[in-house]
């Protein structure tokens, strides 16, 4: 890999880091996490494709690493989906809301 390319990738990474720090100063609400994750993903892609030479590597290796991300997504996806579903039942939430049916009769003797 020619030196200019190494340096170009490095400076692109630095600029993106600056960008992500800069954007974090604005309150963008929910969009913020997605924006910073997108920037991180672009950076990660640069590292993988150029520094790790995946662009020139055998396709099998690319399949291997990208395949693993699918399994990570499965793992996170199902677990989060479930956590979202039972959130209402968590005791500290339901105590706060007090609208939770049934929770009322369960006060502890005090």
């Amino acid at each position: 890999m020619p030196i200019w390319m190494l340096l170009a990738v490095f400076f692109a990474l630095l600029i993106l880091t600056g960008l992500t720090v800069y954007q974090s100063q604005f309150d963008l609400g929910n969009a913020e996490i997605w924006l910073s994750l997108t920037i991180a993903t672009v950076k990660a892609a640069l590292v993988i494709l150029f520094f790790m030479h995946l662009l020139w590597d055998k396709p099998l290796n690319a399949i291997v690493i990208l395949g693993s991300l699918i399994f990570v997504a499965l793992f996170l996806g199902f677990t989060l989906m479930d956590a979202e579903g039972y959130r209402e039942n968590l005791i500290y939430k339901s105590t706060v809301k007090a609208s939770q049916p049934g929770a009322k009769g369960d006060e502890i003797d005090n």
Binding site: T17, T20, V21, S24, Q25, F26, D27, E32, I33, S36, L37, I39, A40, K43, A44, V47, I48, F51, M52
Partner: peptide, 17 residues
């Protein structure tokens, strides 16, 4: 790869507003 992971850790941990 170690760098790769830090690229995600940095915004996720430090840059939450």
């Amino acid at each position: 790869l170690v760098d790769f992971i830090w690229i995600y850790l940095f915004p996720l941990l430090y840059l939450i507003t």
